Simulated assay, not measured.
Amino acid sequence: MSDKLLYKDESYFVIGLCMDVHNELGKGFSESVYADALEIELGINGVPYQKEVNYRINYKGKVLKHHYYADFVIDNKIILELKAIEKIASGHVK
């Protein structure tokens, strides 16, 4: 999978920040708690980001009623979805 990453260095750096959050807080919190902590890490490390970005979805020329909400968009390049789960399944990776 790592061969297919468009922004490999940036992705690994952000994953490292996520691991820092996990190592500090441990498991058992909601996604919103981890998001708040990650927002602090991104700020401390000077990583440009947007939180809770809303995307309209177009289907066959029509805008759908429901939107896609990205937890974070890192440097206008990487969409980051947080998951507070026991184990990552293949369906979580996009």
Rank of each mutant, 00 (worst) to 15 (best):
I85R: 02
D75I: 10
K62P: 00
A84M: 06
G26W: 03
D20W: 03
K65E: 15
Y59S: 07
F29S: 01
H66S: 14
V14W: 01
V14L: 00
N23E: 07
Q50K: 15
V63A: 13
K51Y: 09
K65V: 14
L5D: 06
Y68F: 13
G43I: 06
P48T: 13
E81R: 13
K87H: 12
R56M: 06
Y55W: 07
L6Y: 12
Y68D: 03
D3Y: 14
Y7D: 01
I88S: 11
S2Q: 10
Y12F: 11
K4P: 03
I78A: 01
I74E: 00
E86H: 11
R56H: 11
F72N: 03
K87S: 14
I78W: 00
I40N: 14
A37T: 10
N23L: 03
D20I: 11
G16E: 03
A89E: 15
K4Y: 14
I15A: 11
S2E: 13
I79Q: 02
K94S: 13
F72Q: 01
K8F: 08
S30E: 08
D71E: 05
A70T: 12
V14H: 01
S11N: 04
I85L: 05
L6M: 13
I85W: 05
G26Y: 03
L38Y: 05
E24I: 11
K4G: 07
Y34Q: 08
Y12L: 10
S11R: 09
E86C: 08
E86M: 07
A84T: 04
A37G: 05
G91K: 14
V93Y: 06
I78G: 01
I79C: 05
I74C: 03
E10I: 05
K87F: 15
I57V: 15
G26D: 02
F13G: 00
G91V: 13
H67L: 14
I79G: 04
Y68T: 05
A70S: 11
D3K: 14
E86I: 08
H92D: 15
A35G: 09
V47T: 03
V33E: 00
E10P: 01
N45P: 00
K27A: 12
E39I: 04
S11W: 02
I57A: 00
R56T: 10
A70H: 06
Y69D: 07
A84K: 06
I74L: 07
I85G: 00
N45F: 04
E41V: 02
L17S: 03
Y55E: 01
V21H: 01
I57H: 01
L17E: 00
K65I: 13
N76M: 08
E52C: 08
E10R: 08
G43N: 13
R56C: 09
L38Q: 01
L25P: 04
I88Y: 12
S11C: 08
S11I: 07
S32E: 12
E41I: 04
I88E: 10
H66A: 10
S32I: 13
H22P: 03
A35M: 11
F13R: 14
K51F: 07
K94Y: 14
Y68G: 06
D71M: 07
H67Y: 15
G46A: 05
N54E: 09
H92Q: 08
